[in-house]
Lab assay of single mutants.
Amino acid sequence: NMTTNERRVIVPADPTLWSTDHVRQWLEWAVKEYGLPDVNILLFQNIDGKELCKMTKDDFQRLTPSYNADILLSHLHYLRE
Rank of each mutant, 00 (worst) to 15 (best):
N1V: 05
N1A: 06
M2L: 10
M2Q: 13
M2C: 06
M2R: 09
M2V: 03
M2G: 03
T3A: 10
T3L: 08
T3N: 10
T3Y: 06
T3W: 08
T4Q: 07
T4D: 13
T4P: 09
T4H: 06
N5V: 11
N5D: 14
N5C: 11
E6W: 13
E6T: 11
E6K: 13
E6A: 06
E6V: 06
E6N: 12
R7G: 11
R7Q: 12
R7S: 09
R7N: 08
R7M: 13
R7W: 09
R7L: 14
R8C: 07
R8T: 11
R8K: 15
R8P: 06
R8Q: 11
V9P: 15
V9Y: 09
V9D: 15
V9E: 15
I10H: 15
I10Q: 15
I10D: 15
I10E: 15
I10P: 15
V11T: 15
V11C: 15
V11L: 14
P12A: 05
P12I: 00
P12D: 10
P12K: 05
P12S: 05
A13M: 10
A13D: 15
A13I: 14
A13T: 15
P15A: 04
P15E: 01
P15D: 00
P15V: 04
T16I: 13
T16Y: 12
T16A: 12
L17Q: 13
L17I: 11
L17F: 04
L17T: 15
L17V: 12
W18P: 00
W18H: 00
W18L: 00
S19H: 05
S19W: 01
S19K: 09
T20E: 12
T20P: 14
T20C: 14
T20F: 05
D21R: 09
D21C: 08
D21T: 09
H22R: 02
H22L: 02
H22E: 12
H22C: 04
V23G: 00
V23S: 01
R24I: 06
R24T: 14
R24M: 11
Q25L: 14
Q25M: 12
Q25S: 09
Q25G: 08
W26S: 01
W26V: 01
W26F: 09
E28G: 05
E28I: 07
W29E: 15
W29M: 10
A30M: 11
A30L: 07
A30D: 00
A30Y: 02
V31Q: 08
V31P: 02
V31D: 02
K32N: 13
K32F: 05
K32P: 02
K32S: 07
K32I: 12
K32W: 06
K32E: 14
K32Q: 07
E33W: 05
E33D: 12
E33R: 11
Y34R: 05
Y34P: 02
Y34F: 11
G35E: 12
G35M: 09
G35Q: 13
L36D: 03
L36I: 09
P37D: 10
P37L: 12
D38K: 08
D38L: 01
D38I: 01
V39I: 12
V39N: 06
V39R: 04
V39S: 07
V39Q: 05
V39H: 05
N40R: 04
N40C: 05
N40T: 05
N40D: 14
N40E: 13
I41Y: 09
I41P: 10
I41C: 10
L42V: 10
L42T: 10
L42P: 13
L43W: 08
L43E: 10
L43G: 11
L43M: 09
F44M: 06
F44Y: 08
F44C: 05
F44G: 03
F44E: 05
F44K: 03
Q45H: 14
Q45L: 04
Q45K: 13
N46R: 07
N46W: 05
N46K: 07
N46L: 04
I47D: 01
I47G: 00
I47Q: 00
I47N: 02
I47C: 06
D48W: 00
D48K: 07
D48F: 03
G49I: 00
G49V: 00
G49H: 00
G49W: 00
G49A: 01
G49E: 01
K50P: 11
K50W: 09
K50I: 07
K50S: 09
K50N: 13
K50G: 08
E51T: 13
E51K: 10
E51S: 12
E51F: 04
E51C: 07
L52F: 03
L52M: 03
L52E: 03
L52W: 01
L52I: 07
L52Q: 00
C53G: 04
C53P: 00
C53I: 07
K54P: 00
K54D: 12
K54N: 09
K54Q: 07
K54R: 09
M55E: 00
M55L: 11
T56F: 02
T56C: 11
T56G: 13
T56E: 09
T56V: 09
K57H: 09
K57C: 04
K57R: 11
K57T: 06
D58K: 09
D58E: 14
D58M: 03
D59K: 05
D59M: 05
D59H: 04
F60G: 00
F60C: 03
F60H: 02
Q61F: 10
Q61D: 10
Q61V: 11
Q61Y: 09
Q61M: 14
R62L: 06
R62Y: 06
R62S: 08
R62G: 09
R62A: 12
L63K: 05
L63P: 02
L63Y: 10
L63T: 02
L63E: 01
L63M: 11
L63A: 04
P65R: 11
P65N: 04
S66Y: 05
S66R: 09
S66F: 10
S66I: 05
S66K: 09
S66D: 05
S66P: 13
S66V: 07
Y67R: 11
Y67F: 04
Y67T: 15
N68A: 12
N68E: 14
N68L: 02
A69R: 01
A69W: 05
A69T: 05
D70P: 03
D70T: 06
I71T: 13
I71D: 03
L72D: 00
L72R: 01
L72T: 02
L73H: 09
L73C: 14
L73T: 11
L73F: 14
L73I: 10
S74G: 13
S74W: 02
S74H: 15
H75Y: 07
H75T: 02
H75I: 05
H75N: 14
H75M: 00
L76D: 00
L76T: 01
H77G: 15
H77T: 07
H77N: 15
H77C: 15
Y78A: 15
Y78H: 07
L79G: 05
L79C: 15
L79Y: 03
R80M: 13
R80A: 12
R80W: 04
R80Y: 02
R80H: 14
R80E: 06
R80T: 04
E81G: 15
E81C: 09
E81M: 03
